[in-house]
Structures are given as C-alpha cells and as structure tokens.
C-alpha cells in the first residue's frame, strides 16, 4: 500500500537527538501502546514460528521443546495437506475469475445512473452486505438455499428436484462464489467508482467527437482508466491467494465434508488446534506466509515491468 511519505523537512540545522526527543516526548508516549501491540501480537508470534522446527510440547514450552530439524515438513507430502492446497488454489482461481470482475461491472452500472439520489440509494443498498458477518451470511443462505429454503421450495413447486446448495459438495464452489459476490462486490465498487470519477471528462468528449459510440468509449477510455486500480487490486489479491477466507470455509466445511470443503486455513485449524499437531501445522502456516510474501513481491515487480506503480516502489 502506497503511503504518503514523510518528506524529510529541509532543515539546515538539524536539531540534536536529545532536543528532538524532548520535542517529541508526548508524541512518542502516545505511540507506545500501538508499538507494543504490533511487537507483541505481530512480531512475537513471528518468532513463534520456530516451533515449525521443533517437537512442540505444551508443558515444555517454546524454548525447551526439542529441535527436530525439518521433520515437521513431512506434512507437506501428506494427501490431506495436498487436498487442502488443491482446494485452496481452486477456490482462489474461481474467486479471481468470477468474484473479482463483479465489482467492476457493478461500478460501471452504478456510475451510469444519472440521478444522484437514486445512485446514492443504490450505493447504500449494495454496501450493506459487507457489514454482515459470515455467520449471518451463511445463515441467510441456509434459509434461502438450504434443504427447506426458498430455492428448494421454488424448484419443488416447478416439479424439479428440490435443490439444496448447502450440503452438496459438487455445487459447493458455486455456493462459495455466490456468497462472496453477494457479500463483497458492492463494497468492492468503492475503489472503482473513485477511479471512474478521476477519469478526465475531456477524454470522453474527444472520443465522442472522433465518432466513438458508447461501447467504444467504454473499451477505449473507461477500461484503460481503470487499469492501474485493477492491477493494484490484483497484486493485493495475489498476495492473499492462499487465504481464501477462514470463517466462510470453517462454517461450511462440515456440511459438505472435508474432501470438498477443506482449505489451508481450516486444515491448520483442525490439524493444529483441534488435534494438537502443533509443529506440522505451524509448517503449513509458515509456508503459506512465505509463499504469500513472495507472491506479493513478485507481482509488484511485475507491475513495475508494466510501468505501473504497484503497491510500493
């Protein structure tokens, strides 16, 4: 994420460290709780990853548990792990193909609404599902798409087999995508709407004068204007490609069964916290984190090659 940089003030006489410490005393004190938080809850657990190389025993603790080298990494060859990796990648690709473009289309639709009042109303409506937690979203789906739900009722009334999307492993990917699109495509429009607003109006006029119709203006002016934002979001998505969303999957894993519903995060949870396989599960989490980091750095490099800013320079 690009942040406005604090340009160093062009000071001719840089005050001494002690003077600056005295000057910033209050500010530094105010920063203490936040800094403590990030150290304790983000950096200390980072060190906790050493148990990937240990046979962690709760009664021995982090320090005294015996080292086992790379023994825990054997988990990376286990069928259950590979299955959850495969599922994760499958859902990630589906999300990229179907859930990613949804907000772009919706943003184009919203921006084409001419009356400001109507536009604001539609925006308020489509942002709302973002604020529903996954437990609520899955409960709503249960009511609408489950065995006794509206969809089953409708298909039953039409003489078709009653459809139950909630417990069917074969249609599970569809369910996941539908839920994701319902919950977050409205919220996702915010950034695209801002990007659309920032496209220079003169470009549209110039294109119109050159005889470009509405569709050609969309293809040649609007979409190129959205490219930087799309690239930025694609990079951010790449970095989280192995985190398809914990709550959504753990809530529904049991109703469709582990073969269809297990992803890396749920695998770490059940294998580690439920079954107590601390070391091997930490390996999975660690590998996931490292791969995610490498993907972000790589994708960012790629964006630079395309002449885009990416998330940082």
């Amino acid at each position: 994420m690009a942040t406005a940089s604090q340009a160093p003030a062009p000071e001719l006489h840089r005050p001494s460290l002690r003077t600056r410490l005295r000057r910033d005393k209050v500010m530094l004190l105010l920063a203490v709780p936040g800094v403590l938080f990030f150290v304790v809850f983000h950096y200390v657990p980072l060190l906790g990853n050493v148990i990937a190389f240990k046979d962690y025993q709760a009664w021995l603790g982090f320090v005294d548990s015996p080292w086992v080298g790379f023994d825990n990494f054997a988990i990376l060859a286990e069928p259950a792990f590979l299955r959850s990796l495969f599922n994760t990648l499958k859902f990630a690709v589906l999300q990229l193909v179907f859930s990613f473009p949804a907000p772009i289309v919706l943003a184009l639709l919203i921006s084409s609404i001419m009356r400001p009042g109507v536009r604001r109303f539609v925006q308020s409506v489509v942002y709302l599902p973002h604020f529903m937690g996954w437990v609520i979203v899955v409960s709503l789906c249960q009511q609408l798409l489950g065995g006794t739900g509206v969809l089953a009722h409708l298909t039953g009334a039409l003489g078709l087999p009653r459809i139950d999307l909630m417990t069917n492993p074969d249609t599970y990917p569809l369910l996941i995508i539908l839920q994701g699109v319902w919950k977050d495509s409205g919220w996702g429009t915010i950034i695209f709407l801002a990007a659309l607003l920032s496209i220079d109006g003169e470009q549209y006029e110039a294109a119109a004068i050159d005889g470009a119709g509405r569709w050609r203006r969309l293809v040649h002016v609007t979409l190129p204007g959205l490219v930087p934002v799309i690239l930025l979001l694609l990079i951010l998505n790449l970095g989280t490609i192995l985190s398809v969303g914990f709550e959504q999957f753990i809530l529904q894993r049991d109703s469709v069964g582990a073969p269809a519903g297990e992803v890396l995060d749920t695998y770490v949870y059940f294998n580690g916290i439920v079954d107590g396989q601390w070391g091997p599960s930490t390996v999975v989490g660690l590998v996931k984190g490292v791969v995610g980091l490498l993907l972000i750095l790589g994708a960012n490099k790629l964006a630079h090659l395309f002449g885009q800013d990416g998330i940082y320079r």
Binding site: V40, P45, G48, N49, I51, V268
Partner: peptide
Amino acid sequence: MVLLTMLFGSGIIPNFLL
C-alpha cells in the same frame, strides 16, 4: 514496522500459542 505486518501474517498456531 506497522506496514510490514500487512505483507506477512504470522500464522494461526503461533498466535494461538501466544
């Protein structure tokens, strides 16, 4: 220090143990 935490998560298990 704050921004780096956005690039790298420390994992469920170490957080839980902490």
